[in-house]
Design a binder for these strands. Structure first.
Lengths: 119, 119
DNA sequence: CCACCTTTTTGACATATGTCAAGAGGGATG
DNA sequence: CATCCCTCTTGACATATGTCAAAAAGGTGG
């Protein structure tokens, strides 16, 4: 990756034409890729799955850590990635931090990946 | 990534319950993550976009290389990744190799990412 | 203030990744 | 066969990534 790393804010749901609408330019492709990258890790997928399937708003970092069997610092790191990509929102409640999946961001990403938009 | 790298064949479209159906186990999460990883690169998203928006079956490696402005060996590498993930099919025709996007694989991935499957 | 719990940050480390140049392979065409 | 094209593979290199332990930061309760 000998290319300068681009600094882009991707905390909002992706909003651009679908991949199949027209050949994407570099900028749009980067926007999509950065969000995909946030999801492209087994641990983070598992975390998203747990958060998406938990209706209660009471999943804290330590719960997640024990659920995926990794160090809390590692899970905190992954949650940070997901947060930066707008996939998760976290709120401190007392001593704990509670996490929620942002289904809107995920849905927006799915829209962009639609392969049949303009067939 | 001090964990042993898992060797998994992901050339077929992903087929598992959506992330929001139930907490995913490690194996399923890995299957999803590996496919996402294949897409989680700006160049590869651009390549997919070009292939998806080209109805004719006549996009060869050198065309793609000049389209994205990278060395042909680099593009060949990316196409290999996409092929391994079942996102692209390539066929040799004479001197050139022609590439096609597999929209089924992309569609299957979108299904798994549905955040509202069981709300 | 002190002891304690949860979370994040930092540092270190091994592994993975994207890129190119150079070489090797596969086919067409003279 | 010789030559030229297109493609893929290999090697090298810089950067990014996932992981943990240790330390720091944020909060609660005595």
């Amino acid at each position: 990756m000998p290319k300068a790393l681009p600094v882009v804010d991707v905390s909002a749901p992706i909003c651009c034409a679908p991949v199949s609408a027209a050949p994407m330019n570099e900028q749009a492709a980067l926007e999509v890729a950065l969000r995909l990258k946030a999801l492209a890790d087994p641990t983070r997928i598992q975390l998203m799955s747990i958060l998406l399937t938990t209706r209660e708003d009471d999943v804290c970092t330590c719960d997640l850590a024990s659920a995926v069997g990794l160090a809390e610092s590692t899970v905190s790191h992954h949650l940070g990635q997901l947060r930066k990509a707008g996939m998760v929102q976290s709120t401190r409640r007392g001593m704990n931090v509670h996490h929620r999946a942002c289904s809107d961001a995920l849905q927006a990403l799915r829209l962009v990946l639609d392969p049949h938009c303009c067939t």
